[in-house]
């Protein structure tokens, strides 16, 4: 456990205006309720982490933000615009600004690593092939991968490498908001640190807003301005890492100390 003292300075930052607001969201699959009357604000230019049990709906939350899933009820605002009411073109524009890094990577397995990373650039920009190549190399470097992988197919990569290529693919578009779905699960400590550094760097240098799902509490404490805890179909606890670490609420303490069961 990280000592509360080490995290106190980050939590001193004042909360910014929310860039993402989820308001009264219900979401169910059949009779399987995932969210009920859920609220969550994600402050602009800061890093918010979601913690919660597996199968609790963390990925569903992120997919609703970029309109891959629609809530049954409620509003989801990104910069004031309601995602649930967006048409095809507006969603396209939204997804250029808000990147989602899939939990499993979701790399295109018919394309090389280079083509995967360049996908968004080819789709949205008129960059020349040289410019794209330079950009792809820079993004791989950001996630701690070497250029040797450029021509590899995703099937020949390890799970951790796939994850980092997926990260590179998302940051290539220079999004304003990045939704990281378990970016460090299955990575070794050195690469967890690399990803943590990257999140911090994107935030401090480019002012990127990050929403991170993680099971890794040290990572959560290291990168977060705010931590939101998912429980009982909503986010009953949102606070600074310091508030989380010093919380007297049993549920929060259980979670912070790794004593939480997976969702049924």
């Amino acid at each position: 456990m990280t000592a509360p003292g080490r995290i106190a300075d980050r939590s001193a930052r004042p909360a910014a205006e929310p860039i993402i607001r989820m308001i009264g969201v219900d979401k169910a699959f059949g009779d399987h309720v995932v969210y009920r009357d859920m609220y969550l604000d994600v402050p602009k230019g800061q890093t918010t982490t979601i913690i919660g049990p597996s199968g609790g709906g963390k990925s569903v939350c992120m997919k609703m933000i970029i309109g891959l899933l629609r809530p049954d009820r409620g509003r989801i605002l990104v910069d004031g615009a309601d995602v649930t009411e967006m048409g095809e073109e507006e969603l396209r524009a939204l997804r250029r600004r808000v990147a989602y890094v899939f939990q499993g990577g979701a790399l295109f397995d018919s394309m090389t690593v280079a083509d995967n990373v360049a996908y968004g650039l080819r789709e949205h920009t008129d960059l020349s092939e040289e410019e794209i190549d330079a950009k792809v190399r820079a993004c791989l470097d950001m996630v701690g991968l070497s250029d040797d992988l450029l021509d590899e197919m995703p099937s020949s990569l390890s799970g951790g490498m796939k994850k980092r290529v997926a990260l590179a693919r998302s940051i290539a578009m220079e999004p304003d908001v990045i939704l990281y779905d378990e970016p460090t699960t299955g990575l070794d400590p050195k690469n967890i640190a690399v990803i943590g550094d990257m999140i911090l760097k994107l935030q401090s240098e480019l002012g990127v807003t990050s929403l991170v799902v993680t099971h890794d509490m040290p990572m959560a404490f290291r990168v977060s301005d705010h931590i939101a805890m998912l429980s009982d179909h909503k986010f009953p606890f949102v606070g600074t890492p310091y508030e989380m670490a010093t919380s007297e609420v049993d549920l929060v303490r259980d979670f912070v100390h790794g004593r939480i069961a997976d969702a049924p």
Binding site: R92, R95, R96, Y100, E123
Partner: peptide, 14 residues
């Protein structure tokens, strides 16, 4: 199944 179709949408393509 491997979410590659969703990934195309998520990258702003159709």
């Amino acid at each position: 199944v491997t979410e590659q179709i969703d990934a195309i949408s998520a990258l702003g393509a159709d």
